[in-house]
Design a protein around this nucleic acid. Sequence first.
DNA 1: TCAAAAGTGTTGTCTATACACCCATGT
DNA 2: ACATGGGTGTATAGACAACACTTTTGA
Lengths: 258, 258
Amino acid sequence: MRNELPVESLILRQEECIPNILVNCVIIGFDNGCLKVLLSRLKDDTRWLVPGCFVDQAEDLDDAAIRLLESKTGQGNVYLKQYCFFGKKEQSIADKDKKILRLFNQSQQGADYTQSRLVHLGYYSLIKFEDVNILAQEFEEVKWFDINDIPLLYPHQDEILQTAIITIRKQVGFIPIGYELLPVEFTMPELRGIYEAILGRELDRRNFQRKMLSIGFIKPMNETRKVGAHKSPNLYSFIKDKYDEVEKYGMQIMSNNL
Amino acid sequence: MRNELPVESLILRQEECIPNILVNCVIIGFDNGCLKVLLSRLKDDTRWLVPGCFVDQAEDLDDAAIRLLESKTGQGNVYLKQYCFFGKKEQSIADKDKKILRLFNQSQQGADYTQSRLVHLGYYSLIKFEDVNILAQEFEEVKWFDINDIPLLYPHQDEILQTAIITIRKQVGFIPIGYELLPVEFTMPELRGIYEAILGRELDRRNFQRKMLSIGFIKPMNETRKVGAHKSPNLYSFIKDKYDEVEKYGMQIMSNNL
DNA sequence: TCAAAAGTGTTGTCTATACACCCATGT
DNA sequence: ACATGGGTGTATAGACAACACTTTTGA
């Protein structure tokens, strides 16, 4: 599922970028009952990175994040939210790690990116796993990892990643997370699986269902899905309008007893 | 209450600063039943600004924010939290507004701060009103404003300020806000006043009291305060330890029905 | 027929809210 | 005495959690 050309055009910047600002994006998906995060590395490297890119002088920060997201997943119009910034004085790209610059900005011309103090601007994104077409440059490897099985990362990357996960966990009661992570039609056990993965504990099947339906932005389809030697679960879909209302006022979806 | 020397030493930077990163701090206090925000302007200017400063090359972002806070209030060890970053492509200091650079960094030597794309890193701070000693440079005016009566601001400043207020409103159920904004000893009506100011509506006096006491990190002092022609209210104080526990787990203080 | 998992109903407990009542104090 | 506002108690409605029971399906 590789597609070299669009990746290049998305990543390669004609103009010079801002040398000391790196946009990072923690891309979260959900598959097979587990939360996944998309990481990237140089093909011959051992350590992984949260995808990042430098920002064009003439580009909004948010647009840089969208461009980054598109360059890895092929998807641009998804849930994207800033959650944190990082910038300790010692934070910069070490000379010995200079090679990873290729992952952030293919043309290493112009500004000297290793000389600058580096400020990381952290975004996280929730994306439908099935919609993702993993894209990578020819020297790059991009891969989903189970969130509970993260490989060795470059310095500072763990903080960037873990802070995102903690933020999502704190916000899970306030964002209609299922809408972002699941396909258009989904079953109640699938939805519950997301909450269980994020909260790290089991939820009562019966109370969960009642709660979700009572909020009113999930509607049952008159179909079921065959998934095994038992009753086929109903399919549901989100009512986008209701969901948008809720989002505006920051209403609470899940109970507070985390 | 002016004190010229320390202000200079806090603001004036020997080394060169990062030219495109501006730390902003929305400083929130509570007085006389109203939320206040500390704004700054040049003495002969008409428009106000959220206090900001550039970051030293060899200074953590958080430390720059603390230095900024201290340079305006004399207080450094207070609640300080990053909440947002801003950076649209057109965002930079216009040549006609170049004069405000004096407010961010007294020495205008070195890097050309008007040439750069500007990224605002937003912090907000909750501070005990009585502890604040307003500090200003000789060409600067620093003043508390009622949060519902904000004067004319420079471009982008309104977004920085309003986003902070919205963030605080969303988080009010999760941060022990009274501990930060009130003196060590306080009355229940004072505490309630903060919540009412933030939520923008009245709360039931009696239920509020019960709720606050039931959470368990407020303890009654055996004193009262005379405040008028009626029963003197009890004084209370926070139990810091309990509060810290709560903070860690992001427990909920107020109900969710905003 | 049985196991597994979906879906429905019931009940007790806890929490939020509304409000009646009493207490303290200055004019 | 009375107006003002703090402090305590109680009753009701609604939400949450626990769990019994029913339904559907493949082996």
